[in-house]
Protein backbone atom coordinates (compact mmCIF):
# COMPACT_ATOMS: atom_id res chain seq x y z
CA UNK A 1 0.00 0.00 0.00
CA UNK A 2 1.23 3.50 -0.87
CA UNK A 3 1.57 6.05 1.90
CA UNK A 4 0.70 9.72 1.54
CA UNK A 5 1.47 11.78 4.64
CA UNK A 6 0.81 15.44 5.36
CA UNK A 7 2.96 16.79 8.16
CA UNK A 8 1.31 20.06 9.20
CA UNK A 9 3.64 21.39 11.83
CA UNK A 10 1.83 23.68 14.29
CA UNK A 11 -1.64 23.06 12.82
CA UNK A 12 -4.09 23.30 15.72
CA UNK A 13 -6.54 20.53 16.43
CA UNK A 14 -9.43 22.96 17.03
CA UNK A 15 -8.92 24.36 13.54
CA UNK A 16 -8.08 21.16 11.71
CA UNK A 17 -10.61 18.70 13.10
CA UNK A 18 -13.53 20.94 13.99
CA UNK A 19 -14.14 23.03 10.88
CA UNK A 20 -16.99 21.62 8.81
CA UNK A 21 -15.87 23.63 5.81
CA UNK A 22 -12.83 21.40 5.37
CA UNK A 23 -14.84 19.11 3.13
CA UNK A 24 -12.08 16.81 1.96
CA UNK A 25 -10.54 16.30 5.37
CA UNK A 26 -14.01 15.73 6.84
CA UNK A 27 -14.71 13.05 4.26
CA UNK A 28 -11.46 11.33 5.24
CA UNK A 29 -12.43 11.57 8.92
CA UNK A 30 -15.70 9.83 8.05
CA UNK A 31 -13.78 7.10 6.26
CA UNK A 32 -11.14 6.39 8.85
CA UNK A 33 -10.04 7.33 12.37
CA UNK A 34 -8.90 10.61 13.88
CA UNK A 35 -8.11 12.03 17.27
CA UNK A 36 -5.58 13.39 19.71
CA UNK A 37 -1.98 12.40 20.31
CA UNK A 38 0.09 12.61 23.45
CA UNK A 39 3.79 13.18 23.71
CA UNK A 40 6.12 15.23 21.59
CA UNK A 41 4.32 16.52 18.48
CA UNK A 42 7.48 16.26 16.39
CA UNK A 43 7.94 12.58 17.17
CA UNK A 44 4.96 11.20 15.23
CA UNK A 45 7.27 9.84 12.53
CA UNK A 46 9.79 8.23 14.88
CA UNK A 47 10.00 4.51 14.58
CA UNK A 48 13.10 3.64 16.61
CA UNK A 49 16.16 5.28 18.17
CA UNK A 50 19.65 3.94 18.38
CA UNK A 51 21.96 6.19 20.38
CA UNK A 52 21.92 9.50 18.48
CA UNK A 53 20.32 8.06 15.39
CA UNK A 54 16.57 8.35 14.81
CA UNK A 55 14.89 5.95 12.38
CA UNK A 56 11.94 7.79 10.82
CA UNK A 57 9.07 6.53 8.72
CA UNK A 58 10.65 7.94 5.56
CA UNK A 59 14.06 6.52 6.33
CA UNK A 60 12.67 3.10 7.12
CA UNK A 61 10.86 2.98 3.78
CA UNK A 62 13.89 4.29 1.90
CA UNK A 63 16.00 1.55 3.47
CA UNK A 64 13.42 -0.94 2.27
CA UNK A 65 14.17 0.25 -1.29
CA UNK A 66 10.95 2.21 -1.66
CA UNK A 67 10.51 5.39 -3.66
CA UNK A 68 10.16 8.01 -0.93
CA UNK A 69 9.86 11.72 -1.65
CA UNK A 70 9.46 14.85 0.48
CA UNK A 71 7.67 17.99 -0.69
CA UNK A 72 7.00 21.44 0.57
CA UNK A 73 5.33 22.70 -2.58
CA UNK A 74 1.87 21.53 -3.57
CA UNK A 75 2.57 21.64 -7.31
CA UNK A 76 5.61 19.37 -6.97
CA UNK A 77 3.61 16.90 -4.88
CA UNK A 78 0.85 16.99 -7.46
CA UNK A 79 3.21 16.11 -10.33
CA UNK A 80 4.65 13.22 -8.39
CA UNK A 81 1.20 11.84 -7.54
CA UNK A 82 0.08 12.17 -11.16
CA UNK A 83 3.11 10.18 -12.29
CA UNK A 84 1.93 7.29 -10.12
CA UNK A 85 5.54 6.28 -9.58
CA UNK A 86 6.01 6.53 -5.85
CA UNK A 87 5.64 4.48 -2.71
CA UNK A 88 5.60 7.19 -0.07
CA UNK A 89 5.10 10.92 -0.40
CA UNK A 90 5.34 13.28 2.54
CA UNK A 91 4.17 16.87 2.30
CA UNK A 92 5.54 19.24 4.94
CA UNK A 93 4.00 22.56 5.90
CA UNK A 94 4.47 24.91 8.83
CA UNK A 95 1.64 26.80 10.40
CA UNK A 96 2.23 30.01 12.44
CA UNK A 97 2.82 29.49 16.15
CA UNK A 98 -0.67 30.82 17.01
CA UNK A 99 -2.16 28.24 14.63
CA UNK A 100 -2.90 30.76 11.87
CA UNK A 101 -6.16 31.86 10.28
CA UNK A 102 -8.96 29.61 9.08
CA UNK A 103 -8.03 30.50 5.50
CA UNK A 104 -4.76 28.59 5.86
CA UNK A 105 -6.69 25.46 6.76
CA UNK A 106 -9.13 25.95 3.90
CA UNK A 107 -6.18 26.30 1.54
CA UNK A 108 -4.74 23.08 2.87
CA UNK A 109 -8.09 21.32 2.35
CA UNK A 110 -8.27 22.48 -1.25
CA UNK A 111 -4.77 21.17 -1.88
CA UNK A 112 -5.73 17.92 -0.19
CA UNK A 113 -8.75 17.64 -2.51
CA UNK A 114 -6.49 18.06 -5.54
CA UNK A 115 -4.12 15.40 -4.24
CA UNK A 116 -6.94 12.92 -3.59
CA UNK A 117 -7.92 13.03 -7.25
CA UNK A 118 -4.77 11.17 -8.22
CA UNK A 119 -4.67 8.31 -5.75
CA UNK A 120 -5.48 4.65 -6.12
CA UNK A 121 -7.71 2.93 -3.55
CA UNK A 122 -4.62 1.15 -2.33
CA UNK A 123 -3.28 4.22 -0.56
CA UNK A 124 -2.94 5.05 3.12
CA UNK A 125 -3.50 8.73 3.91
CA UNK A 126 -2.19 10.32 7.06
CA UNK A 127 -2.68 13.95 8.11
CA UNK A 128 -0.78 15.02 11.22
CA UNK A 129 -1.24 18.35 13.00
CA UNK A 130 0.03 19.41 16.40
CA UNK A 131 -0.86 16.40 18.54
CA UNK A 132 -3.75 15.40 16.32
CA UNK A 133 -4.19 13.21 13.27
CA UNK A 134 -6.49 11.71 10.62
CA UNK A 135 -5.70 8.24 9.28
CA UNK A 136 -7.44 6.48 6.39
CA UNK A 137 -6.64 3.12 4.84
CA UNK A 138 -8.90 0.43 3.40
CA UNK A 139 -7.21 -2.06 5.72
CA UNK A 140 -7.93 0.03 8.85
CA UNK A 141 -10.31 -1.75 11.23
CA UNK A 142 -10.51 1.29 13.56
CA UNK A 143 -12.96 4.05 12.82
CA UNK A 144 -14.09 7.16 14.58
CA UNK A 145 -12.29 8.77 17.49
CA UNK A 146 -9.00 7.30 18.63
CA UNK A 147 -6.27 8.64 20.85
CA UNK A 148 -2.82 7.45 21.71
CA UNK A 149 0.82 8.32 21.79
CA UNK A 150 2.56 10.19 18.98
CA UNK A 151 5.04 7.36 18.88
CA UNK A 152 2.30 4.85 18.02
CA UNK A 153 1.41 6.51 14.76
CA UNK A 154 4.26 5.27 12.57
CA UNK A 155 4.05 1.61 13.69
CA UNK A 156 0.30 1.74 13.03
CA UNK A 157 0.80 3.25 9.58
CA UNK A 158 3.40 0.67 8.61
CA UNK A 159 1.31 -2.25 9.79
CA UNK A 160 -1.79 -1.00 7.96
CA UNK A 161 0.26 -0.46 4.80
CA UNK A 162 1.49 -4.05 4.98
CA UNK A 163 5.10 -3.58 6.11
CA UNK A 164 6.65 -5.92 8.68
CA UNK A 165 7.60 -3.96 11.79
CA UNK A 166 11.22 -4.09 12.85
CA UNK A 167 12.17 -5.09 16.38
CA UNK A 168 13.01 -2.47 19.01
CA UNK A 169 10.48 0.10 17.90
CA UNK A 170 9.45 2.74 20.40
CA UNK A 171 5.70 2.87 19.90
CA UNK A 172 3.06 0.20 19.60
CA UNK A 173 0.82 -0.32 16.62
CA UNK A 174 -2.84 0.28 17.49
CA UNK A 175 -3.89 -2.52 15.19
CA UNK A 176 -1.42 -5.11 16.50
CA UNK A 177 -3.21 -8.43 16.75
CA UNK A 178 -6.32 -7.09 15.07
CA UNK A 179 -7.69 -8.54 11.90
CA UNK A 180 -7.13 -6.04 9.10
CA UNK A 181 -9.90 -5.37 6.59
CA UNK A 182 -9.42 -7.07 3.30
CA UNK A 183 -11.60 -6.55 0.26
CA UNK A 184 -13.04 -9.85 -0.91
CA UNK A 185 -15.79 -11.01 -3.22
CA UNK A 186 -19.41 -10.03 -2.83
CA UNK A 187 -20.55 -10.68 0.72
CA UNK A 188 -24.04 -11.94 1.55
CA UNK A 189 -24.92 -8.47 2.67
CA UNK A 190 -23.78 -6.93 -0.61
CA UNK A 191 -25.74 -9.53 -2.56
CA UNK A 192 -28.87 -8.69 -0.59
CA UNK A 193 -28.34 -4.99 -1.28
CA UNK A 194 -27.85 -5.63 -4.99
CA UNK A 195 -31.00 -7.72 -5.14
CA UNK A 196 -32.95 -5.03 -3.30
CA UNK A 197 -31.72 -2.24 -5.55
CA UNK A 198 -32.54 -4.06 -8.76
CA UNK A 199 -35.74 -5.83 -7.84
CA UNK A 200 -37.60 -2.57 -7.20
CA UNK A 201 -37.72 -2.40 -10.97
CA UNK A 202 -40.85 -4.53 -10.96
CA UNK A 203 -39.90 -6.60 -14.00
CA UNK A 204 -37.72 -8.95 -11.98
Amino acid sequence: MKILAFDLQGAKRAMLLADERLENLRRLMDMGCFGELEGNPREWNVLARHEAHILTLAEFLAQAGKDVAMFDEASALQSKLVSGEWDCCQFNASFPSDGGSADLYLDFDRGLGDALQHLSDDTLILVVGELCFVLVASSNPIDGYQDGSSLDLTPTVLELAGYPLPANIEGKSWVAGMELNRSSGLSDDEQAMLRERLSGLGYI
Binding site: R27, M31, L116, Q117, L119, D121, V136, L201
Partner: peptide
Protein backbone atom coordinates in the same frame (compact mmCIF):
# COMPACT_ATOMS: atom_id res chain seq x y z
CA UNK B 1 -32.17 -3.51 -21.34
CA UNK B 2 -32.83 -2.19 -17.84
CA UNK B 3 -30.00 -4.49 -16.78
CA UNK B 4 -26.64 -5.49 -18.10
CA UNK B 5 -23.96 -7.73 -16.70
CA UNK B 6 -20.56 -7.01 -15.30
CA UNK B 7 -18.39 -9.23 -17.46
CA UNK B 8 -15.80 -9.41 -14.66
CA UNK B 9 -18.18 -10.79 -12.04
CA UNK B 10 -21.24 -12.03 -14.02
CA UNK B 11 -23.34 -9.89 -11.70
CA UNK B 12 -26.30 -7.87 -12.93
CA UNK B 13 -25.86 -4.11 -13.07
CA UNK B 14 -28.27 -1.26 -13.70
CA UNK B 15 -27.69 -0.46 -17.33
CA UNK B 16 -29.02 3.10 -17.32
CA UNK B 17 -26.41 4.93 -15.31
CA UNK B 18 -23.27 4.24 -13.39
CA UNK B 19 -21.59 5.78 -10.38
CA UNK B 20 -18.01 6.49 -11.18
CA UNK B 21 -15.53 7.20 -8.48
CA UNK B 22 -11.92 7.88 -9.36
CA UNK B 23 -10.91 6.31 -6.07
CA UNK B 24 -12.27 5.66 -2.61
CA UNK B 25 -11.29 9.11 -1.33
CA UNK B 26 -13.29 11.36 -3.66
CA UNK B 27 -17.03 11.74 -4.16
Amino acid sequence: DFLTRDAKTYLPLMALSRYEQKNAFVL
